[in-house]
Simulated scan of single mutants.
Amino acid sequence: MNIANMIDHTMLKADAGAEIIRRYCQEAKEYGFASVCVNTCHVPLAAQELKDSSVAVCCVVGFPLGAMLTTAKAFEAAEAVKAGADEVDMVINIGALKDRNYDLVRADIKAVVEACHARTVKVILENCLLTKDEIVKACELSMEAGAHFVKTSTGFSTGGALAEDVTLMKKTVGEKMKVKASGGIRTPEEARAMLSAGADRIGAGNGVSLL
C-alpha cells in the first residue's frame, strides 16, 4: 500500500527555522505527501515552496492548547488562509468540552470553519485528555459545526493516537467526516494500524520513515 498521499508531513517544533521547513517541503514534493503541516508563521514560506505542486499547505491554529478566545482562533485561521493555507488543523476548547459547555465548543469550531472560507478544517480533539463519551461528543459537535475531519491529538500532550480511538471516531462520524490520526506514529506498522482502524490521513513528523 502506498500511503504517501495520506500523510501530512508535519513540523511543529518551536525551534524549527526556515531551513527545516524548506527541507520538509522538498521531501513532501519528492515523496508525494498530502500536505506539509506547519505553525502559522511558516505558512507564507511553505506556500512559496509548494507552489505549483500537488502538496497542500496545512497549518495548526489555536495550537497546542485550544484555550484562547474564539475570536483570536478564528482570526489566526483567517490570516493563515490569506497567507496561503489550504488546510487548517484547529484545537478545540477542551476545558469547555469537559464543562459540557457544548454551545461554546460548537461555536468555536464553527467560527474557524467560517474563517477558512471552504478550506479543509480538521478538529483536534486531544483524546488523551478525554473520556470515550467526550470523544464521541466532540465528534458530534465537529460535524454540527461543519468541519471536515476530526483528529486524534496534537502530539504535544500526555498521549498520542490510539487505534481504538480512531475506530470510535470513525464509527461516530461515518461517511460525514474523515479521521486523521496524529501523535506518536513512528513506524510503518503503526501507520497501517491507524489506517486499518479507519484513519483517512496520518499526521507525522517522520513521514519519510513511514514509507
Rank of each mutant, 00 (worst) to 15 (best):
I202D: 08
I94M: 10
V123W: 02
E87S: 02
M6D: 00
S209H: 15
Q48A: 15
M1L: 12
L12V: 11
K176E: 13
S157E: 12
H9L: 12
D165T: 08
M6P: 00
K180N: 07
C128D: 07
N127Q: 10
D52A: 13
N2I: 09
A191P: 08
T120C: 10
I185Y: 10
M1Q: 07
S35P: 01
E126W: 14
L69E: 12
Y102I: 07
G95A: 13
H117L: 13
K180V: 04
K13G: 07
A111I: 06
D108K: 05
E114F: 02
K176Q: 15
A197N: 05
K178D: 07
E164M: 05
A138E: 06
A83G: 01
A16Q: 05
I92H: 06
G32L: 12
N39P: 00
G159R: 03
C128P: 01
T158M: 11
A111N: 11
A147R: 01
M194N: 03
D8V: 01
I185C: 07
A145Y: 02
A77F: 07
K170E: 09
D108G: 00
A18L: 09
P44Y: 04
I21Q: 09
V121H: 08
K29P: 08
E126F: 14
E126R: 07
A18D: 15
A115L: 08
A4D: 05
G155Y: 13
A96S: 13
D86C: 05
M177C: 10
G183C: 11
V60I: 01
E140A: 10
E134T: 11
V88L: 10
Q26C: 12
I109E: 00
P188E: 10
D89T: 02
A85V: 02
K13I: 05
E134G: 01
E79A: 15
I7H: 04
E126P: 01
M194H: 09
F156K: 08
C59D: 00
S142H: 04
N127K: 09
E189Q: 15
Q48W: 09
K180D: 01
D108R: 04
K132I: 09
C25W: 12
E49N: 07
I94L: 13
C128L: 06
G207L: 14
A77I: 03
A78F: 02
I202A: 05
M6N: 06
T154H: 06
A138F: 09
S157M: 14
L195I: 15
F149I: 00
N39Q: 13
G160A: 11
G62T: 02
E87T: 03
D133W: 10
L210F: 14
V179F: 06
A111Q: 07
H117I: 09
V105Y: 02
Y24F: 15
T120M: 13
F63Y: 13
V36P: 04
K29L: 13
G207F: 11
I7W: 10
M90K: 04
H9I: 13
R119N: 04
G17S: 12
M90H: 06
K13H: 11
V208D: 02
A181C: 10
M1V: 11
V208P: 08
K176I: 03
I202N: 03
T120P: 00
K180S: 08
A147F: 02
V91M: 05
V43N: 00
S142G: 04
T131V: 11
K171E: 15
N127V: 15
N39E: 04
K98S: 04
A80N: 03
V112A: 03
Y24N: 06
A74D: 05
E114Y: 06
T131H: 09
R119S: 06
L211Y: 09
A34C: 13
D108E: 09
T154S: 12
